[in-house]
């Protein structure tokens, strides 16, 4: 197993309301030999304020990057929005000297300077590039071959391609490969790379929930037993809001939505309790029964 060490950048949404993702990710990463160091004094990555002030976004992101540079460690994020923003700003400020000087002028007020010496990776990228999909597969002790699931990458792990440079935004493969590494089957479905709608919440909840509803319909159409996400916002749209969508459109889904490290954790032999399944809104009772039944058959 590799021994990599990262500063963990939690961002805002995860500590605010998505604890299960953090709990399961920390457990899985520890098991796979990735060491996490807490990142002191970090702030919002900047993305939420980009629509109203690009300059504010650049300064907030650069402040985080400068803090990480002081620690001499690369950043690992669980949120693709944070990863995308930190990657994008790192690239822009490294390439545009005039802008870098302008932003550093702001950071100077708090004794910081952006130099461009570190990189940022999302959890998915660390699992693929540092741990390796084969090593993930080798660590599996309880293969999930009884499960057919669907994946949802979300937008900011992939787009805009010119700044993110990870996987193929039109036909992404990494999350699929990582799901299949657990032994589960990852199903194809219509419009896999479409947006969950989360950024439109608060501006038009109706449009946002209709986008999430589309996804749930497409996932249901292929009889997926669960939907697997890697983003706190996408997870809120499908798990936290699933009941709301069911009521609004008079439909029934009952599709459990797991954070990828929760799925992986099960395959690594961890219990649902350890992986904070109780924090999920949509019931996973039936899913876990199917896992247990399948495991009994595997043992025979």
């Amino acid at each position: 197993m590799p021994n990599s060490k990262y500063l963990i950048f939690l961002g805002c949404a995860i500590p605010y309301r998505v604890a299960a993702y953090e709990i399961s990710a920390r457990k899985v990463l520890a098991k796979l030999g990735v060491e996490l160091v807490e990142m002191p004094e970090f702030n919002c990555c900047g993305l939420p304020l980009d629509p109203v002030s690009h300059e504010t976004m650049l300064i907030l992101a650069a402040r985080n990057l400068a803090l990480a540079e002081q620690q001499g460690l690369n950043i690992l994020t669980l949120c693709p929005g944070c990863a995308g923003t930190l990657k994008k700003v790192n690239k822009i400020l490294k390439e545009d000297k005039a802008l870098r000087e302008q932003i550093n002028g702001h950071l100077k007020e708090s004794g910081l300077e952006f130099k461009g010496t570190i990189t940022t990776k999302h959890l998915l990228q660390v699992l693929k590039e540092d741990v390796g999909i084969d090593n993930v597969k080798n660590a599996v002790v309880k293969p999930l071959n009884m499960l057919n699931v669907a994946e949802h990458n979300g937008c900011h792990i992939l787009r805009p391609k010119a700044y993110i440079g990870f996987d193929d935004p039109e036909d992404p493969q990494t999350l699929k490969a990582l799901i299949e590494a657990t032994g589960a089957t990852c199903l194809d479905y219509v419009d896999e790379t479409e947006c969950c709608g989360a950024p439109s919440v608060g501006v038009s909840d109706k449009v946002a929930l209709q986008l999430a509803r589309d996804k749930l319909n497409h996932v249901k159409m292929v009889n997926a037993q669960a939907l697997i996400t890697i983003c706190p916002f996408c997870h809120i749209m499908y798990d936290t809001n699933e009941l709301r969508i069911e009521k609004m459109f008079n439909e029934v889904y009952g599709i459990p939505v797991l954070h990828y490290p929760q799925l992986l954790g099960l395959a690594l032999g961890m219990t649902p309790e350890e992986l904070a399944f109780n924090e999920l809104r949509v019931s996973t009772k039936k899913l876990l029964e199917q896992v247990n039944e399948g495991a009994k058959i595997n043992e025979q």
Binding site: D50, C155, H156, R159, P160, K161, C195, P199, V207, A208
Partner: peptide, 11 residues
Amino acid sequence: WLCAACFTCTD
């Protein structure tokens, strides 16, 4: 203000 910033148009 409705754009969800999914960047599909950009790509």
